[in-house]
C-alpha cells in the first residue's frame, strides 16, 4: 500500500446521511472480478435514473469530478454490509479519503486496509466543509500528519485511531505485520487447544449428516 501524508486534491460534497455500502456499490455488481475496475459502480443507483441514464446534475458527473480524491459526507457513512467492494469502488474511482462525522465500523477498517482514510469530523465541521465545497468539486487538503481537513478558509481537525494513522502513514499491510508473530501464534494455538479441548470441531458421525 502507498504511504499517505498529505492529500491535496479536489473534494466533492455528498450531503446525505447513512450512505450505506449497499448504495456505495449495489449488490448486483459484486460478482465482477476486481480487474474490471470497481469505480464505474460507485453510487451507481444514486447517479443514474430509473432508465440507467447518468443524472447530469450528480456531483460525480461534474467534468472536474474525475480528479477528486476526497469525499465529504454526513453521519454513518459506510454503514451496513461488510462488502469491501464499497471501498474498492471508492478507491478505483480515485478516492483516497472520506470525511464524515461517523463511519460504519467494518467500512472504516476495510478503508484503512486499502489505503483509504476515514477522517472523522464533528457534525458542525462536516456541515462547514459541505457548505464550503457546495455543488461543484473544490480544492481540499487533508493532512494526515497534522490531522486537519481544509477547504479554502475553513480548516477543521479530524480524528483517527493512532493505530490506523500509523498504518496509513507507513502503508503497512497486516499480513506482513502478523507474520512477525508466527511463533507466538503457534504457542498460543497449542496452549489454547489444551485449555479448551472441546473448542475443536467435532465432525459429525456420517449418520448425523442431514439431521438438524
Amino acid at each position: 500500500m502507498k504511504p499517505m501524508t498529505v492529500v491535496t486534491s479536489l473534494g466533492v460534497a455528498l450531503p446525505a446521511a447513512n450512505v450505506d455500502t449497499d448504495q456505495l456499490i449495489p449488490a448486483r455488481f459484486m460478482k465482477e472480478p476486481r480487474s474490471v475496475g470497481y469505480g464505474q459502480f460507485l453510487l451507481y443507483d444514486l447517479r443514474h435514473d430509473a432508465q440507467g441514464e447518468p443524472k447530469a446534475d450528480f456531483i460525480l458527473h461534474h467534468p472536474e469530478a474525475g480528479k477528486a480524491e476526497v469525499m465529504v459526507s454526513r453521519r454513518n457513512f459506510g454503514a451496513g454490509s461488510s462488502r469491501e467492494a464499497a471501498v474498492y469502488a471508492l478507491v478505483d474511482d480515485g478516492f483516497r479519503c472520506v470525511v464524515a462525522p461517523s463511519f460504519g465500523d467494518i467500512f472504516a477498517s476495510n478503508a484503512v486496509n486499502n489505503g483509504l482514510l476515514p477522517a472523522v469530523v464533528t457534525e458542525e465541521d462536516a456541515e462547514q466543509l459541505l457548505a464550503a465545497l457546495g455543488s461543484t468539486p473544490g480544492a481540499i487538503t487533508v493532512d494526515l500528519e497534522a490531522l486537519t481537513v481544509s477547504v479554502g478558509a475553513v480548516s477543521v481537525p479530524f480524528t483517527l485511531s493512532p493505530v490506523w494513522r500509523t498504518k496509513l502513514l507507513n502503508g503497512w499491510d497486516d499480513i506482513d505485520m502478523t507474520r512477525q508473530h508466527t511463533d507466538a501464534i503457534a504457542t498460543f494455538a497449542h496452549q489454547y487447544a489444551e485449555q479448551f479441548p472441546w473448542s475443536a470441531p467435532f465432525p459429525p458421525d456420517a449418520a448425523l449428516i442431514g439431521k438438524g
Binding site: 469491501e84 467494518i106 476495510n110 502478523t178
Partner: peptide
C-alpha cells in the same frame, strides 16, 4: 462474533488470527 471485510478474511485465512482494537 463479528463481520469483517475481504482483507481481514484473507488475514484470517492466512494466520487464523485478526488484529482488533477492543471496543
Amino acid at each position: 462474533a463479528f463481520g469483517i471485510g475481504a482483507s481481514e478474511v484473507a488475514h484470517v485465512l492466512a494466520t487464523q488470527t485478526l488484529w482488533q482494537s477492543k471496543p
